[in-house]
Design a binder for these strands. Structure first.
Lengths: 146, 146
DNA sequence: CATAGATGTAACAACAAGAGTTACAACAAG
DNA sequence: CTTGTTGTAACTCTTGTTGTTACATCTATG
């Protein structure tokens, strides 16, 4: 199955917060408008991003802001913040291979390290892409429209 | 969400077919015994692996065999064969960002290439791991047990 | 200090994919 | 023709995602 859209929505959210920070109060309703989903979906994500120390959300008066330099936030940080996959394991292992079978009882031993290696390759790549890049590219695309 | 267990089961299946090819007729029931799932789950996977040219399955009399050298089968081949993710896209993009919003209407432009880059990193890593390695390592683990 | 406009969160419904199971037709080989 | 398989349809069960309503809580401000 695919990685939850929470991940791409979260990136979208951050791009919006930064882009509109000077011109609008960036509320969950505002963000919901840009992403085109229910505000509650946004609020849930804001909570996860906040818990990860990526943003601050002001209760009561409203609005979200980014908590640290964009260059210090990577796609990996967001990916982890929003629980894109269950308990950090990208691959779903079939639970109970037969312990009576020599192959069955050794599958985990053999595969765990390989799967981890693959997952790490993906996460490393994510770690190399910052939100700053994404925001800058977004701005350049917006420029081109004019 | 996680990548379907079809993937790890398929690897398990190949390891079994190779390991037991001289001593047993490797039927879907036999495999189901080692993996510990319903034989139909196995047969469905065998069909997908067969369609990808990785194995041959003999109808009627029964049994599966691997169709090409183990060193020419990578984790990536299996991953693709069993449709581990929907239509080849690892990331689920939220469908309808607001076209009225400059950020919303450019999100795809910006993210598509980044997400592809991440996915490719993962797939490249998968492509570098062969079933031969996996089978050899399995055998070495079985040796160690004695 | 009451209120307007937010957030925080619970609860639940709708939906989709994964995975398990039963059942049975098609087939191959003795 | 019988036996043991494969191939596949049809269904259920379960789980995670996503959408939605509802409401308590909070904060700035008039």
């Amino acid at each position: 199955m695919q990685i939850s859209s929470r991940f791409t929505i979260a990136i979208h959210i951050l791009a919006c917060i930064d882009t509109f920070k000077n011109d609008y109060k960036v509320t969950s309703d505002f963000l919901a408008g840009s992403v085109n989903v229910n505000p509650v979906v946004i609020r849930r994500l804001l909570q996860q991003l906040k818990a990860a120390g990526i943003i601050n959300v002001t209760r009561g008066s409203g609005g979200a802001e980014i908590a640290k330099p964009l260059s210090e936030i990577t796609m990996l940080d967001i990916y982890k913040a929003v629980d894109s996959i269950e308990n950090g394991e990208l691959f779903h292992f079939h639970e109970n291979p037969n312990k009576e079978c020599p192959v069955g009882r050794n599958m985990h031993n053999v595969l765990d390290s390989k799967l981890e290696q693959v997952q790490r390759a993906m996460e490393n790549e994510m770690g190399s892409i910052t939100i700053q890049e994404i925001v800058e590219e977004t701005k350049s695309f917006i420029q081109k429209e004019l």
